Simulated assay, not measured.
Amino acid sequence: MAKSPTALSLETGMLAFARSVQITEGLFYATVSGNPETLTPVEVLEKGVRGQTSQDNAKDKAGLSNPQSVEYAIVPQRHDRVLLSFSVRFMPLSLRPHACNNTGVGAAYERLASAYRTAGGYRTLALLYLWNIANARFAWRNRFQSDAMSVRVETGDGTVLVFDPFLLSLDIPASFDELAAALTEGEPERLDELITGVAHGLSNGDQNAFVLMVEWHATMEPGQEIFPSQEYVRESNKDEKPSRVLAKLPTLYAGRELMQASMHSQKIGAALRHIDIWHGSEEHEGPIAVNPFGGVQETGNVLRKPETKKSFYHLRAKAEALITGIETANGPDEISGDAHFVMANLIRGGVFGASGKKAEANG
């Protein structure tokens, strides 16, 4: 039975939101202490190694030599620092669907986003995104390769803030005061402006993006290994490729073309999206990357399975309660975690069409 035409619904057969946080590919450079002008692209190279089989299904080859070729990246000689740089565009693309085949549902999403903006919800998410920039989560394994590092953030108007990632937790979201305490360069007033800028970029009606340039600086020893993203190699191509293929982009340096180590924009994005602090699961402590079912790639856990009734699709099915709950909230502290999670998914973007039966029930 179709719902009443006046009933609020966020479900329809064709529905998509464009990604609101657009990130460039990250590039690795080697630098020299005291000479920040030196920027040497970190090159991806190939080498042959002779390991030993160690997997459980090795059978008659267990413990035998396992020669293979792998790609690797290291800090070049006469360099003692590493730089990872990228930029982020925060755009207001969660304010309305990118594609929707139901005008009533489209209007309901606009009402949802408008209420969330009015209640200050976008500022809450802006603080969480900046926490994951300032704590250098985006460096992933490289973050544990150095005992001295900093994150430099520059806005389009030239404002610069520098954070000490070691003063911030990866498990407990930072408050404004904790982010301010992690500053090694810049004033708390500029930090407040930065949070406001990100929130405005995500929610302004004039469609203007807010852009940040981000640099991770870390002290490392010459010859120390760096960990770029790793490429997925299809089974059909495995015999033609090294057993480990790293992400890289061609660049010109010192008159020759080389392959520069890079971090996938998707991997940086996954780090910044580690803001789902509302999953409430006892299986996993700390934040996870925002996705409709709360999947955790590192462990294979799914924290928001349909049976938990915490998935994006379960929560958005309660459109009336979701929207009116935000509209009656007196500030961001009164917005429910469920509402923050739903809006974070819309910012993430994706195809959110309902199943055929649900679409038919909603007219």
Rank of each mutant, 00 (worst) to 15 (best):
G255A: 13
V151K: 10
M220T: 10
H264D: 11
H340C: 00
G156D: 13
A339F: 00
S65Q: 15
Q77H: 13
N57K: 08
G337F: 01
V302E: 15
G63I: 05
T308E: 11
R78Y: 10
A73I: 05
L168V: 08
G280I: 07
P222D: 12
V151F: 00
E215H: 13
N301C: 10
S65D: 15
L202H: 02
D147C: 04
A180D: 02
F163I: 09
E193F: 00
S281F: 05
G337A: 04
I23K: 06
R256S: 15
H200G: 05
E110P: 00
F144T: 15
T196I: 02
K61H: 11
G51Q: 13
A7E: 15
K318H: 09
L27V: 14
Q145I: 03
A254P: 08
G201D: 04
Q230K: 12
A139S: 12
I288P: 07
Q55I: 08
P242K: 05
S311V: 02
W216A: 15
R316E: 01
L346E: 08
A181L: 04
A218Y: 02
G269A: 13
A182V: 08
M213A: 12
L125N: 00
K3S: 09
N132G: 07
R152D: 12
P250F: 02
M14D: 13
D239Q: 10
E71N: 12
D171R: 12
K318V: 00
G363Q: 08
V214N: 04
Y313A: 03
N330E: 11
M263C: 11
F163Y: 12
L64R: 14
K309M: 07
P76V: 11
Y109C: 07
P76Q: 10
R143M: 07
E185N: 09
D177V: 10
S54Y: 10
A115E: 07
A209C: 11
T24N: 10
I268C: 05
M14K: 12
E221D: 15
G120D: 03
R273Q: 13
G156V: 10
E327K: 06
A319D: 01
N345W: 00
V105N: 05
M91D: 04
E193M: 01
S281N: 02
T31I: 07
A317Q: 04
Y129L: 06
T324G: 01
R123L: 05
V32D: 09
S69H: 11
G353C: 02
L128G: 04
S336F: 01
F210V: 01
A361Q: 06
S262M: 11
I288C: 05
G363W: 07
D80I: 03
M149D: 11
V75K: 07
K248A: 15
H98A: 13
V160I: 13
Y29D: 15
E25K: 11
E240G: 05
R111H: 05
K318P: 00
E187V: 02
I23R: 08
F210E: 02
V70G: 04
E334A: 12
I172T: 14
N301E: 14
E193S: 09
D239R: 09
N291W: 06
L64I: 00
K3T: 11
A270R: 11
K61V: 12
M1G: 13
S150T: 14
G121C: 04
T328Y: 01
E37K: 12
D157K: 09
E307P: 02
Q68R: 15
I226K: 07
H79A: 06
Q145F: 09
E225N: 15
G356P: 06
S175L: 01
Q55Y: 14
M263R: 14
I347E: 09
S229V: 04
